[in-house]
Design a protein around this nucleic acid. Structure first.
Length: 815
RNA sequence: GCCCGGGUGGCGGAACUGGUAUACGCGCAACACUUAAAAUGUUGUCUUGGAAACGAGAUGUGGGUUCGAUUCCCACCCCGGGCACCA
């Protein structure tokens, strides 16, 4: 068979692999590599060619690891709860459970055509009761540990999706899913205390081999801020206010106080004062404005004086207390002391004629004058303080710690850490999610569902559209709601909210280690062996959601002894998007979607795989280009055809590259080295380019020794598993190539090829010569100076210096 | 505004710790094979001067360090991403 018939080859081997359980996970005692994809949400549209890019990468990587002698765990599953699935179901008038089943079937068949080495016996599905039993179990452990609590604070409400949302689900104040403007609504919510883990989520990042910008995103999201809570009395009241300040250096500059309109102390401050009515009206006015779209609290800052003053002995003055639109009720204490050295405070003070008192000045006198005249707001690290006396003349950035100490010792403040991170609003008023396993008993209060009664199954109902009442559709199902209190056995009602989309993905990587276990969360042996995930691959859009949530759950599970590692994902690689050829996102809406099924059929799965890995740097977004795809196809055809040039042992006694072929032999060893390290570092494009270079050289050679050919197809096998299996089989091997060992290289041979020494005169290339590696400097210099093409540049000038870089170049410096 | 990335041929992109810029692939052109086309193969393909030999100039812009800079430093422009009322 001399024609590369990809359809025949690929179907054949996929069948064989399946029937021989080739990719079944082997848990032994040897070294392991857990290679994980972010599992997909099985949408109704099926896969487009962008989806498999990350899966191809993990497939290539895990195949390499396998050949390097690791036991690998490379599983796949479905993240099928949540809004997208439910909205799709409502739109298409098909029950989400049915839609999910159908979509999974389609996804799976699409994936299987690409020839992945997934161990499908470990497949998980977050909507399977046997799975979400343990999602609920983890929630209960959190509840028992005091990490899940009910909140009555107003939360983000999406009027279109008709559910509450977490901070992470917002994009620019809009619902990340549907783009509707989010309102604040006072709906009782279950909230997870992720903020308790803020510090560990931050410090744990340092131990992870993740792309720096993902770690940076998480740091930004957590937003740790160290500062001081200043605490002083309100004049004429038996009341102290605490104000968070992260730049305490300017404490003597403070001239007024602002409090958030929603702050509960506002009422108390103005009670019985002449300003009371006016201030309370203002508060309502701001609340209304904030509920509206596009209200910018800074550009449209508004405020009102409460009539109260704070005693401020730290600067021997009294500070007027204002209610200000730009004060945040849920950051710090909701009360802020303000100075001339903050842009917002500065603008607010100017607007309302509040006095300012700068204490920090630039070195340049002209600029300092402007600061003194309150023409500009100034705050730079190298500014110099004029107050307080103890710190006069010192640089602002150097004096911070000393000032904090000073404030603490005076009893004016205490050290505080604040975070931008908010607790995780965890309940959704929607049908398609894990029921929260709690029971409300009129006598006993909130009672957890006993573990033996898990899972609390999602009832199968006809009507699952959101109720629009702020309650979950489950609330209207009496048979679900009405139950007995596990404690007192009296009549009670079930919690009807469901968990958010992100719940199931917080721990699925643990389930893969022991997917069939119905009795226990995980088997400890499996968990200890496989954890942590060694290589995790997925899109960067999960930087501040899934990847924070999962780390949070994992750290909790670690604390209760359910897992053995502090962090779940040791190494992370981000997959860059594949855009459509028009440069836009691939979407049914734009009609620019390319279906992998078509590519597989026309060019073959191996061509698709090689192309997607060769397109460009893995983590970079890149446009699909069907014209370029043929290059990958040609490469595989040439590998296929190379078998015609292979010299068998009988024909040629050598079967290996001889010393006549030193150049080629050296290239072979260089390629083995490069392909291995490039795959390991997710530089697939250069790995393939190295394979192409080797192939070019082998084609030019008179014949190809059998051993060399074997090495070539082993190197190609992670990228093109079907083609290499076919060629391997063709050589007479019955055992799969994917169970072979990765070829070894000899560093000495890899560097044995002659090197080209470039000769420069004043940095310009004037000639070159080849020589053995490791030539002596004097010899290289001598030879360089004797080259005729170099000599002519040396006439009539004097050589002042010669720089010799061993194995690379000689640069002759002339005057 | 702050914090990360990144700007290299017609296109996707290579280039180790500062050492031959444009590897590899696509496209394009010519040639070979063919009755012809496709496929395949060979050669060429940054710009510019030159018949050629051989020069000159190019890695967003402008400076600097260096024998030598895509790589290091400074300033600026542009693109992508994260955060943005977080005091």
């Amino acid at each position: 068979m001399n024609h590369y018939d990809h359809n025949k080859i690929e179907k054949k081997w996929q069948k064989v692999w399946e029937s021989t359980d080739l990719y079944k996970t082997k848990q032994g005692n040897g070294k392991k590599s857990y290679v994980l994809d972010m599992f997909p949400y099985p949408s109704g549209d099926g896969l487009h060619v962008g989806h498999p890019k990350g899966y191809i990468a993990t497939d290539v990587y895990s195949r390499l690891k396998k050949m390097q002698g690791y036991n690998i765990l490379h599983p796949m599953g479905w993240d099928a709860f949540g809004l997208p699935a439910e909205n799709y179901a409502i739109k298409n008038k098909i029950h989400p459970a049915v839609a999910v089943k159908k979509n999974i079937k389609r996804f799976k068949s699409q994936l299987q055509k690409i020839g992945f080495n997934y161990d499908w016996s470990r497949e998980v599905n977050t909507t399977d009761p046997g799975y979400y039993k343990w999602t609920q179990w983890i929630f209960l452990q959190m509840y028992k540990a005091g990490l899940a609590f009910q909140s009555h604070e107003p939360i983000n409400w999406c009027p279109s999706c008709q559910t509450g949302l977490a901070n992470e689900d917002l994009e620019d104040g809009k619902c990340e899913r549907c783009g509707s403007v989010v309102e604040k609504r006072p709906i009782p919510q279950w909230v997870l205390r992720i903020t308790k883990y803020a510090d560990r989520l931050l410090s744990g990042l340092d131990t992870l081999n993740w792309p720096e910008y993902i770690k940076e995103s998480q740091r930004n999201w957590i937003g740790r801020s160290e500062g001081v809570n200043l605490k002083f009395r309100v004049k004429g009241m038996d009341l102290s206010l605490a104000m968070y300040n992260s730049v305490p250096q300017t404490y003597t500059a403070q001239t007024f106080i602002i409090i958030a309109p929603e702050h509960p102390l506002v009422k108390e401050l103005v009670r019985g004062t002449p300003n009371e009515k006016e201030v309370l009206e203002f508060v309502e006015h701001i609340k209304r404005k904030k509920a509206k779209e596009g209200f910018n609290h800074v550009n449209e800052m508004e405020g009102i004086f409460t009539g109260r003053y704070l005693e401020y002995p730290a600067a021997n003055r009294e500070l007027p207390i204002w209610v200000a639109s730009y004060a945040l009720v849920d950051y710090g204490t909701g009360i802020v002391s303000c100075s001339a050295h903050d842009d917002r405070d500065f603008a607010f003070a100017k607007k309302y004629g509040i006095p300012l008192h700068p204490v920090l000045f630039p070195a340049d006198p002209a600029r300092a004058e402007k600061v003194r005249n309150l023409d500009v707001c100034y705050r730079e690290p190298n500014g110099v303080l004029t107050e307080p006396a103890e710190f006069k003349g010192r640089r602002w950035d150097e004096v911070r710690e000393d000032i904090i100490e000073h404030l603490v010792s005076k009893g004016w403040g205490e050290r505080v850490v604040n975070y931008r991170l908010r607790d995780w609003v965890f309940s959704r008023q929607r049908y398609w999610g894990e029921p929260i396993p709690l029971i409300h008993c009129p006598k006993c209060g909130v009672v957890p569902v006993p573990e033996k009664d898990l899972p609390v199954k999602l009832p199968n109902v006809k009507s699952y559209a959101p109720a629009g009442t702020g309650e979950s559709p489950l609330a209207s199902i009496p048979s679900f709601v009405n139950t007995k209190c596990p404690k007192c056995k009296g009549p009670a009602k079930r919690e009807t909210n469901t968990m958010p989309q992100w719940a199931g993905s917080c721990w699925y990587y643990l389930r893969y280690t022991d997917p069939k276990n119905r009795k226990r969360f995980t088997s400890q042996r499996a968990e200890k062996y496989w954890q942590p995930v060694d290589m995790y691959v997925g899109g960067a859009e999960h930087a501040t959601r899934h990847l924070i949530y999962a780390r949070f759950w994992h750290k909790f599970l670690f604390d209760i002894g359910a897992v053995s590692t502090e962090e779940p994902f040791q190494r992370l690689q981000n997959v860059g998007l594949i855009l459509a050829s028009d440069g836009r996102k691939m979407s049914k809406r734009f009609g620019n979607v390319v279906n992998p099924d078509d590519i597989v059929k026309q060019f073959g799965a191996d061509s698709l795989r090689v192309y997607e890995m060769f397109m460009g740097p893995f983590n970079q977004a890149i446009a699909w280009n069907s014209d370029s795809l043929v290059g990958s196809r040609r490469f595989l055809e040439r590998v296929f055809r190379l078998k015609l040039k292979v010299e068998s042992k009988t024909k040629n006694s050598g079967a290996e590259l001889t010393s006549d072929n030193l150049q080629l032999k050296s290239l072979l060893h260089q390629t083995i080295k490069k392909v291995g390290t490039d795959i390991d570092e997710f530089r697939f494009n250069t790995a393939i380019s190295a394979l192409m270079i080797l192939l070019n050289a082998l084609e030019k050679n008179e014949g190809v020794p059998l051993e060399t050919f074997k090495i070539l197809i082993k190197l190609v096998s992670p990228f093109a598993p079907h083609l290499s299996e076919e060629l391997w089989n063709h050589l007479g091997y019955k055992k799969s190539i994917h169970l072979e060992l990765w070829p070894a290289y000899d560093e000495k041979i890899a560097v044995s090829a002659p090197v080209t020494i470039v000769v420069q005169v004043n940095g310009k290339i004037r000639g070159s010569f080849t020589t053995e590696r490791g030539g002596l400097q004097e010899e290289l210099q001598k030879r360089a100076l004797s080259l005729p093409e170099v000599k002519k540049w040396l006439e009539g000038v004097s050589v002042s210096k010669v720089i010799v870089v061993p194995d690379r170049l000689v640069n002759i410096v002339v005057l």
